[in-house]
Nucleic acid binder design. Sequence first.
DNA 1: GTGCAGGTGGTACCGCGGTACTACACGGTT
DNA 2: AACCGTGTAGTACCGCGGTACCACCTGCAC
Lengths: 222, 222
Amino acid sequence: MTTVLVVDDQPLQRYGFRILLESVPETEVVGEAAHGGEAVRKAAELRPDVVLMDIRMPGMDGIEATRRIVAAGERSRVLVLTTFDLDEYVHAALRAGASGFLLKDARPDELLAGIRAVALGDAVIAPALTRRLLDEFAQYVPAHRGGHAEDPRLSSLTDREREILVAVGKGWTNGEIAAHFVLSESTVKTHVGRVLAKIGARDRIQAVIFAYDLGLARPSTD
Amino acid sequence: MTTVLVVDDQPLQRYGFRILLESVPETEVVGEAAHGGEAVRKAAELRPDVVLMDIRMPGMDGIEATRRIVAAGERSRVLVLTTFDLDEYVHAALRAGASGFLLKDARPDELLAGIRAVALGDAVIAPALTRRLLDEFAQYVPAHRGGHAEDPRLSSLTDREREILVAVGKGWTNGEIAAHFVLSESTVKTHVGRVLAKIGARDRIQAVIFAYDLGLARPSTD
DNA sequence: GTGCAGGTGGTACCGCGGTACTACACGGTT
DNA sequence: AACCGTGTAGTACCGCGGTACCACCTGCAC
């Protein structure tokens, strides 16, 4: 049994969801909320498996409510549901920690399948949006993930040098790198120097950028 | 009516797909291929709406075949189907231009829904994979798209300081920044110093990383 | 054995980066 | 008028980073 909290400012819309969800045995609507604030409060109180969240609402919108529910560490998964397929919404919702994004014109069985998937910890995206999301994804994700094509400058590095480059990419000073790998600072300097020469960077800053470009370093991987 | 080309090295698997697809009126299997090379050839010849593509095959694999079919500008959409949910496969397939990625353990109706979506130009991802993809997506996509949540450290910066930070993020030296903005190097140092203090970075390297984390700087935006 | 690649370490030197001040001009607020 | 935030600019100082060497050891290939 999957418990659901329905969040929408339109009573009729909530009613429709309730009818649909109660029509199948696996889902149960345990509460409703008409705006973001109520959603956050009821999510904490009712601890539903899934929060069915509208975006456009008076007061606190669905994005912010999603962010707070996720940030609060609630067990609930948030499935954002909207009539608008605007890119910004999708991005904002996903960044807010939503587990899914469906359009309201989805067929009932799609919606139910979505709730089922989200309840299981998976994620769902409306097919119509997935395309654009993937296109963007392909843009952002560095090429070398996907294997095959690796930057020739990278492959010329020895294992040790690659390690050093990663450390440089984390923003570590030579001293920190030396401490971490239990080396003398001189050795680190030697390595760093060779790395810079090999990848064609004039200083460690270029090396950091290089590392980020290739996905060697990752945001907040410290 | 959606025409489908089934690509799999196992005859039995192909047979299974054929039975399933022919069991509904909306899809029709117009051909089969046992490996990548044959898939590329038949896709060009039969011009199916959808290519159901296995990854693991002797000879040319499904990824490469997908790449070639997409690169050839065929009208066919490729739906990759595999037993393995390995990250590398997903990335590689999507980068190769696949319109979808489903697992072979998908329920028949999921598969049919996937084919339907892909035929319409949408894209599908197996729910079990979507989660990980989104997690990565959230990492890669710059924070400022999605608006709302802005790092408080960033908002404390003045316009000029933000400009300077972006320049630092590009890996420019103080001298280069000074030249670019027509300032004295002293002024640049002052600005950089203030930026570092405000964002809590000990040196410009941390600032570069900070800029990348927030998407202020983007790979290869030079 | 000799040679080479890779890893480690050292010395010496220089310059850029960063800090700590101070200073002044401008626009807006009170 | 006094004040503050912002942008500009300067001087002085110090240290880390980077370069240019050289040196030694290990393991592996010839």
